[in-house]
């Protein structure tokens, strides 16, 4: 974390961003998926700044995190393709 004195603002922005992303992805389907996405995004958004604050070597960590994100996206697309979408 580069700005340690703005911890509160960063947490708020991150939680709101998580809620927005979860609600957007959930709203693709129906109201109940939107609720699930919203609450999961909120929890992850509140936890992520803590992870960012505790990391001491941001470069390698970020690279591996990006790899995980792309792995998840690949599995998601494979699942969509297999189900005939």
């Amino acid at each position: 974390m580069q700005y340690p004195f703005h911890f509160t603002a960063i947490t708020m922005v991150s939680a709101l961003g998580g809620m927005g992303a979860g609600a957007l992805f959930g709203a693709l389907f129906d109201c109940q998926s939107m609720l699930t996405g919203l609450i999961n995004g909120m929890m992850m958004g509140m936890m992520a700044p803590m992870l960012g604050a505790i990391v001491t070597d941001p470069y390698h960590f970020t690279v591996i995190l990006e790899l995980f994100v792309f792995l998840i996206l690949a599995v998601l697309f494979a699942a969509v393709k297999r189900s005939g979408g």
């Binding site: 974390m1 340690p4 004195f5 509140m46 936890m47 604050a53 505790i54």
Partner: peptide, 22 residues
């Protein structure tokens, strides 16, 4: 949910454990 809540609360009480210099 409550374990996550405990973590957030502990960091708020003592920001040094996340190496936040407040």
């Amino acid at each position: 949910g409550i374990s996550m809540g405990i973590m957030i609360g502990e960091v708020l009480k003592n920001p040094q454990i996340c190496s936040i210099p407040i």
